[in-house]
Design a protein around this nucleic acid. Structure first.
Lengths: 263, 263
DNA sequence: GACGGCGTGT
DNA sequence: ACACGCCGTC
């Protein structure tokens, strides 16, 4: 028996809008720790990791660990039927092949329940080690989103370079080139607009903008995004989910052409 | 060396959105007077003349007259990457085959530079004589835009007739006919909504709506549009650009069928 | 101010 | 065919 009651249901709605484009089907894993998901995107290039800690739920009952395979498009369709102020409860009976989403309007006048078929998905759950990163950039999520979108109109890939001066996003395409530099800016009175760079070592990595633009779909979840970079490691693009967890997107850097030549 | 710094960068963004549909490639001419462009539309029917006077720029350096051929679609793409509050600087080195657009965010936290290849365009620069017009109509640009759009759903051409009573826009098509009359209306307290008609002599001319609708893409530049009409002369549809210049669209009237018959 | 629909671009 | 951005409506 599983019963998870989430007062701020809009968080779950936003989570699904954020990942449904990238991942079509995935297992949600429920344990004492919380409600989580880990999945590769359909082309097996990017990885999404979601965690909603149990403490973030008003009520969290999970009698035994459960892995529920869902089609995220269908799940998103159902969650769109919840109001933004609704309380969402996720229910499943042990051994059942369905999950139920219950939506309660704030004034309790409306109670809806949506039942969805579960699916069998064989997932390879990767252990993701905590790594040290050469540079961690924390910046407004809307700004990062805008930069990725703008650069996409010029090129296909973005080179993210972190130096003491700031973080630079560059691209090149048929019609020209573009460089956008954001300086560190720690405005104390408006923390949500600050850009903070923790750099151990300069780093410069190249990524496919197509995936970055998918990641930025999570911007409604948080005013800030954290981008963790190290050579040889996938970049981590992280959005916090309220106080209760995160979505992290992982994407391997492109090997630069000249490095490819060397290989 | 050329360096033009435009504090209200949104003006340039709007200019490009206004003309990129009509003209694909054009030379921007830079001289001591200002930054200007003159080009025929791709089907060589309409003419666009743009002027941004040097005084309108915060900084205007143009060591020698320069003509820079640009693909307006690509230029528009780059300018779309500028924020509406950004300061835009246009830079080019003498003899260089590229131009650089630099965008500075209002708080200086973000600085972007976009480099674009220039192209060779052979342009016939026409001298456009200042003419006397039989009638000059000044009206809200949104209203003119709406009228042209509405009439396009009925017919292909608009007959613009100016009399003492006002200005009449007429069309006819398979499904019927339409006439829209705007009376002079000089509301002193809301000058941007006024319609003012200066008529020396009644005039009635026919134009292709397709082009008129392209011209109205410039409406975001100005609350008011000026339409100058004379028999035998191209109509001039003019939008002011802040305090610094204008876009003028020229379009030859259609010869009325009965006149054609006479000929 | 927010939501839904329409049109455009990828 | 899908997704995004813009425009019009509630």
């Amino acid at each position: 028996m599983l019963e998870l009651r989430l007062v701020q249901g809009s968080l779950l709605k936003k989570v699904l809008e954020a990942i449904k484009e990238l991942v079509t089907d995935a297992n949600f894993d429920c344990s004492g720790t919380g409600f989580s998901l880990q999945a590769m995107d359909s082309s097996h290039v990017a990885l999404v990791a979601l965690l909603l800690r149990s403490e973030g739920f008003e009520h969290y009952r999970c009698d035994r660990n459960l892995s529920m395979g869902m089609n995220l498009g269908n799940m998103a369709k159902m969650l769109r039927c919840a109001g933004n102020d609704d309380i969402i409860t996720i229910k499943a009976d042990d051994g059942s092949d369905t999950v139920t989403f219950m939506f309660e309007s704030p004034n309790q006048d409306k109670i809806a329940d949506f039942e969805m078929k579960l699916m069998d998905i064989d997932s390879e759950h990767l252990g993701i080690p905590d790594s040290e990163y050469q540079a961690i950039v924390r910046m407004p999520s809307s700004e990062f989103s805008r930069i990725c979108k703008d650069l996409s109109s010029i090129g296909d890939t973005v080179i993210i370079s972190v130096t003491k001066e700031g973080v630079k996003f560059s691209t090149a395409g048929d019609i020209g080139t573009a460089n956008i530099v954001c300086r560190q800016n720690n405005t104390v009175d408006k923390p949500e607009q600050s850009t903070i760079i923790e750099m151990q070592e300069p780093v410069s990595l190249t990524f496919a903008l197509r995936y970055m633009n998918s990641f930025t779909k999570a911007s409604p979840l948080s005013d800030q995004v954290t981008i963790s970079l190290s050579s040889e490691l996938p970049v981590v693009v992280e959005y916090e989910i309220g106080e209760m967890g995160y979505i992290r997107f992982y994407l391997a850097p492109k090997i630069e052409e000249d490095e490819e030549m060397k290989a």
